[in-house]
Amino acid sequence: MGYTLAVIGCGTMGVAILSGIFTRISQESNESSDLPTKFIATVGRSTSIDQLRSSLPSTSSAAKDTTILSGDEGNLEAIRSADMVLLACKPYMAKTILEKQGVKEALSGKVLASVLAGVTMAQLQAWAPEDCEVVRTMTNTPSKIGQGMTVITTIPASSPSTTSSRLTAIFSSCGLVRFVDEKHFNVCTALAGSGPAFVAMMVDALADGAVLMGLPRAEAVEMAAQTLAGTARMILETKTHPAVLKDGVTTPGGCTIAGLMRMEDGNIRATLARTIEAATLHAAGLGQDKK
C-alpha cells in the first residue's frame, strides 16, 4: 500500500536520502511496497525551490513528481499530507519548526523520523503529540549514491510493523542499515556521519604523497580513492579483520612495512581514534540549548 514521505528542511542530507531512494526506484522493475509512492520536500525560502529541484536526479520520474514547498506554511502542508515525516533541517531549527502552530496536530498518528545530529528522542517526543511515533536516525552523504551507512533507534515491539519495514526500505535504498540503542548515536554520528570528511582527508593526503613523488594529481586521487574503496569493500564482504588484511600485504623488509612504520611515527592510530572521540563529544552538544 502506497504512502507519502515528507522531507522537512531538505538540505544536503535530505537530498542524499531522496537521491538514494529515487535511484533505487529507477533501478527496480517491481518497486518495493515499503518505499514511498509520493514525495514532498520543503525548504526555508521559495528562492531555494529551483536549487533543490536541480539537486535531485534529473532522470528520475519520482524526482520530477516530487512536490517542493517552502516556509512555515509549506512545512505544515507537507506534514498534513504525509504518512511519514523525515525531519532533515539543521538541528537548531527542529524546535522552532515542530512548535509552529498546527504542526503538533498535523503529526498526530504519524511517524516522525529525525536525521538530526544531537537532537534526542526525549526532545522530539516533547515537541510531538503523544500519538506520534518518534524515531531517531543518522545517515551520511554517501547515501546519495547508495553507499551510505544509516543507524536507526531500536523500534519497540509494540510499534506497527510498517514502521520498521518502511524505514528499512527507505534507508536500505541508501546503503547499509543498523538498528542501535540511542546511547550509541553520538559515536555513530562521529564515525559514520562525520566519517566521510575524515576519509576524504585521508584520500587527499595519500594523493598528495603520490603527487610529491611525481604522479599527476588526477591519477593520484583516482588510485587513492579506489584503493580505499576496494579495501573497505573487502572488509565488508569477506568479514576479514582490518589487521589481518594489513598483515597480508606486509612482507618482511618490504615497502609496505616501511610506510606503516612512518604512519606509526605520526601516531596515526591515536590521532584517528581521538578524532572520533572529539567528534563524539561535540555531537552530544548539537541540538541542545546553548547556555
Rank of each mutant, 00 (worst) to 15 (best):
residue 226 Q to H: 11
residue 237 E to R: 03
residue 21 I to N: 01
residue 75 N to R: 09
residue 11 G to I: 05
residue 122 A to H: 15
residue 181 D to Q: 12
residue 190 A to G: 12
residue 218 A to P: 00
residue 211 V to S: 02
residue 81 S to T: 06
residue 207 A to W: 02
residue 162 T to L: 03
residue 36 P to K: 00
residue 281 L to M: 10
residue 154 T to K: 13
residue 199 V to C: 10
residue 4 T to V: 14
residue 271 T to N: 08
residue 142 P to N: 05
residue 141 T to Q: 05
residue 171 F to Y: 11
residue 290 K to I: 08
residue 268 I to D: 14
residue 215 L to V: 15
residue 132 C to H: 05
residue 13 M to C: 10
residue 217 R to V: 01
residue 279 A to G: 12
residue 218 A to T: 11
residue 79 I to D: 11
residue 228 L to C: 10
residue 239 K to N: 14
residue 74 G to N: 09
residue 211 V to C: 09
residue 20 G to D: 15
residue 143 S to Y: 01
residue 51 Q to E: 14
residue 128 A to D: 05
residue 262 R to P: 00
residue 268 I to K: 12
residue 243 A to W: 05
residue 5 L to T: 00
residue 99 E to Q: 14
residue 240 T to E: 12
residue 138 M to H: 00
residue 32 S to K: 01
residue 244 V to Y: 03
residue 55 S to G: 04
residue 105 E to L: 10
residue 104 K to L: 05
residue 77 E to Y: 08
residue 136 R to V: 13
residue 85 V to H: 10
residue 135 V to E: 01
residue 92 Y to T: 04
residue 106 A to V: 08
residue 93 M to K: 10
residue 86 L to D: 07
residue 6 A to G: 07
residue 207 A to Y: 04
residue 52 L to A: 07
residue 231 T to I: 02
residue 43 V to K: 02
residue 146 G to L: 03
residue 259 G to R: 02
residue 97 I to A: 01
residue 229 A to W: 04
residue 96 T to I: 10
residue 21 I to F: 06
residue 60 S to M: 10
residue 87 L to P: 11
residue 83 D to Q: 13
residue 61 S to I: 11
residue 184 H to P: 02
residue 86 L to H: 06
residue 140 N to L: 07
residue 16 A to K: 06
residue 52 L to H: 08
residue 155 I to V: 12
residue 165 S to L: 01
residue 130 E to L: 05
residue 224 A to W: 08
residue 50 D to G: 00
residue 59 T to G: 03
residue 17 I to K: 06
residue 30 N to H: 11
residue 92 Y to H: 15
residue 25 I to Q: 13
residue 186 N to A: 15
residue 154 T to D: 13
residue 209 G to H: 13
residue 26 S to N: 13
residue 141 T to N: 00
residue 128 A to K: 04
residue 273 A to L: 12
residue 85 V to M: 08
residue 282 H to D: 12
residue 53 R to L: 04
residue 100 K to E: 15
residue 145 I to G: 07
residue 223 M to E: 00
residue 289 D to K: 15
residue 285 G to V: 00
residue 102 G to W: 02
residue 25 I to K: 01
residue 236 L to M: 06
residue 251 T to D: 09
residue 19 S to I: 10
residue 14 G to K: 00
residue 119 V to Y: 07
residue 19 S to A: 11
residue 71 G to R: 07
residue 202 M to W: 06
residue 147 Q to W: 03
residue 105 E to R: 05
residue 187 V to T: 09
residue 198 F to C: 03
residue 253 G to K: 05
residue 11 G to F: 07
residue 42 T to D: 03
residue 250 T to A: 14
residue 19 S to Y: 08
residue 27 Q to N: 12
residue 281 L to H: 08
residue 228 L to H: 01
residue 270 A to F: 14
residue 122 A to Y: 13
residue 150 T to N: 12
residue 273 A to T: 11
residue 23 T to G: 11
residue 209 G to I: 13
residue 117 A to L: 00
residue 74 G to C: 14
residue 57 P to L: 02
residue 104 K to Q: 14
residue 65 D to E: 13
residue 192 A to S: 15
residue 146 G to M: 08
residue 92 Y to G: 06
residue 119 V to T: 05
residue 191 L to C: 09
residue 3 Y to G: 05
residue 6 A to E: 07
residue 282 H to F: 07
residue 7 V to T: 07
residue 221 V to M: 12
residue 229 A to P: 03
residue 262 R to T: 14
residue 244 V to I: 14
residue 186 N to R: 00
residue 73 E to T: 15
residue 153 T to Y: 08
residue 146 G to C: 11
residue 270 A to D: 13
residue 56 L to S: 06
residue 122 A to D: 15
residue 218 A to R: 04
residue 145 I to P: 04
residue 108 S to L: 10
